[in-house]
Nucleic acid binder design. Structure first.
Lengths: 66, 66
DNA sequence: ACAAAATGTAAAAAACACTTGTCAATATGT
DNA sequence: ACATATTGACAAGTGTTTTTTACATTTTGT
């Protein structure tokens, strides 16, 4: 599961910590997400999409094996 | 967290079991989802949106407390 | 009325998101 | 060069949550 969170976050001029605060998670969670260590819950995905002004489908891409 | 899975599933003329097979989960998972017993993983949400021809944002709606 | 298909529900297992803490590395600005 | 802000990475744990297995009920068609 690939994601483009980092790209859109930077485009918004936000630090990981700032984004984390906006969606109520720890900074490490954002960091791990950008490193594709795991896939966020649907709730978090929706919040991220909302803050970043994108559709979830823009942020995440299904891969072989998902 | 509300969802419209049932509505779109029926519009597609699919049974719970058929939809379940398409997205590789048990039939009961679909049933529980439609009963809003829980929110599916992002992976499953993406697959459902794909099969139903909708955006995740069309299927799920954030509520107070999510 | 009967069989088959579809749906509902509950308990339990299995999987996973997320936190906290910590340290190292890289970038940014003065 | 120095200090500060930002990011990367990792371990360990916890608690939550998704998902399955199994059984019961309802619906549909003939």
């Amino acid at each position: 599961m690939k994601n483009n969170i980092k790209i859109f976050r930077v485009m918004k001029g936000l630090s990981q910590e700032q984004l984390a605060k906006e969606v109520n998670v720890s900074r490490q969670t954002i960091n791990a997400l950008e490193a594709a260590k795991y896939v966020p819950s649907t709730v978090l995905a929706l919040k991220l999409a909302q803050i970043l002004g994108k559709q979830i489908e823009d942020l995440f891409e299904l891969e072989e094996g998902d």
